[in-house]
Structures are given as C-alpha cells and as structure tokens.
Simulated scan of single mutants.
Amino acid sequence: MDPAPSSSDDPALGEVVVSEADIARRVAELGAEISTDYAARTPLLVGVLKGAFVFMADLARAIDRPVECDFMAVSSYGAATKTSGVVRIVKDLDLDLTGRDVIIVEDIIDSGLTLQYLRRNLLARGPASLEVCALLLREGQQRGDLGLRYVGFSIPPDFVIGYGLDVAERYRNLADVRTYEGAP
C-alpha cells in the first residue's frame, strides 16, 4: 500500500489552496449553520460521489442534530480534468425524497451544469425542500445563479485535488486542497 503523497516527493502536488485547519474550521461553521437552520427538522444529506464523501462525513459529524445520509454518483468528468458537459447518473439514491428536507452535498461547483441537472432530477422527486452545501466554488466558472445556500470556500479557477477531490482516483486522501500540477 502506498503511503499518502507528500509535497516533497510528488511533483504533481501544487500550492495549498485551502489548508486542513481552514477546512476543519469552515466545516464546523457550516455544521453549526445547518444545525440552526434545521433545528426542528431532520435533513437528508445527499452526497455526490465520489468527491464529496470526505466532506460529507465531516459535515454530518459537525451537524448537531439527527441527520440521514444517502449517496448518488454522477459523471461528467471520467478521468479527465475538464468536464465533458454530459451528466449521467451512475448510482441513484436508495431513499425516497418525498416530503424530505434534502441538502445536496457537493465537493466542488465548476460550471454548475451537474448541479442544475441534480436539482431538476431531485426536485421532481417531491422533497419538502432542497438546498445545496458545496465545499468549494470555483470562481468565474458558473453559468447563471445557482442558488447555493451553503458554500465553504470560493477558490480560483485552478484544477484542485485533495480532501476527496481526485485525478484518476488519486489524491483523495490529502488532508488539504491543492492545485494539481500534473499533465491533464
């Protein structure tokens, strides 16, 4: 088993964009905000696999209320570093959303096309409410207002890895978010 990569031995790892300490602080703040906003309700966190699994696990623990979790997987990247623009559901939810307070948990929002697709798809399933909690918002890439309720960090439009984000399934285990300096 390969050890976690470090900046000293992997030239593909660039500058730290969001530190581990900043992530921990912001996740705690988001958890507190969601706890307040859903004080009388039990939100259903819908994690978008695979990138959001680390963030969603930490976020769920930071919410001081009962929560339920489900996952779906969508694909618009494959092994590439740029979105194809075509979204497809690879794994659907197990739970019924009818009458539920749903929070989509995303790792990163780029153009917003995947999120727009998810919103339409999940709203058609009859939830009582549908909000979005994204760890990262890549600045200047969105097409229109996405109506994001909870955002961890706005970052430059660089391709980033770590804290769940990957390139061809690598680097998800980094504790911080970094630029990717490898070849696309």
Rank of each mutant, 00 (worst) to 15 (best):
70 D>Q: 10
150 Y>V: 08
88 R>C: 14
134 A>M: 00
15 E>I: 00
136 L>A: 03
143 R>Y: 01
18 V>I: 15
145 D>N: 14
4 A>Q: 10
45 L>V: 02
29 E>G: 08
100 R>M: 03
66 P>A: 09
36 T>Q: 15
180 Y>E: 07
21 A>H: 13
161 I>L: 04
82 K>R: 14
17 V>S: 02
168 A>G: 02
95 L>I: 11
44 L>C: 05
18 V>R: 00
102 V>K: 03
61 R>Q: 07
10 D>K: 09
39 A>L: 13
95 L>R: 15
178 R>Y: 03
134 A>T: 15
32 A>H: 06
79 A>K: 06
114 T>E: 11
55 F>E: 01
172 R>N: 11
90 V>I: 12
32 A>S: 12
149 R>W: 03
179 T>N: 01
154 S>H: 07
59 L>Y: 07
21 A>T: 12
182 G>E: 09
35 S>L: 05
62 A>S: 04
54 V>C: 00
3 P>H: 07
133 C>S: 05
87 V>R: 06
10 D>F: 11
51 G>N: 04
167 V>D: 00
99 G>S: 13
138 R>F: 04
65 R>P: 01
152 G>N: 05
170 R>P: 03
38 Y>W: 12
9 D>Q: 10
108 I>K: 01
103 I>A: 04
142 Q>S: 13
94 D>W: 02
27 V>N: 04
178 R>D: 02
174 L>Y: 09
180 Y>K: 11
84 S>E: 08
165 L>G: 04
55 F>M: 06
48 V>N: 11
4 A>P: 11
162 G>W: 00
6 S>C: 15
158 D>K: 08
154 S>M: 03
30 L>Y: 11
156 P>T: 09
41 R>S: 15
118 L>D: 12
122 L>C: 07
118 L>F: 02
38 Y>E: 14
9 D>V: 02
3 P>W: 05
164 G>C: 05
51 G>D: 01
56 M>S: 01
105 V>Y: 00
113 L>D: 12
104 I>H: 06
181 E>T: 06
114 T>H: 10
117 Y>S: 14
32 A>L: 05
118 L>N: 11
68 E>S: 13
112 G>S: 10
109 I>C: 07
164 G>M: 03
138 R>K: 15
157 P>A: 14
9 D>A: 12
63 I>R: 01
120 R>I: 08
167 V>H: 12
112 G>R: 11
30 L>V: 05
23 I>E: 13
113 L>H: 13
28 A>Y: 01
103 I>T: 03
41 R>W: 11
22 D>I: 00
93 L>F: 04
153 F>T: 08
169 E>M: 06
88 R>P: 10
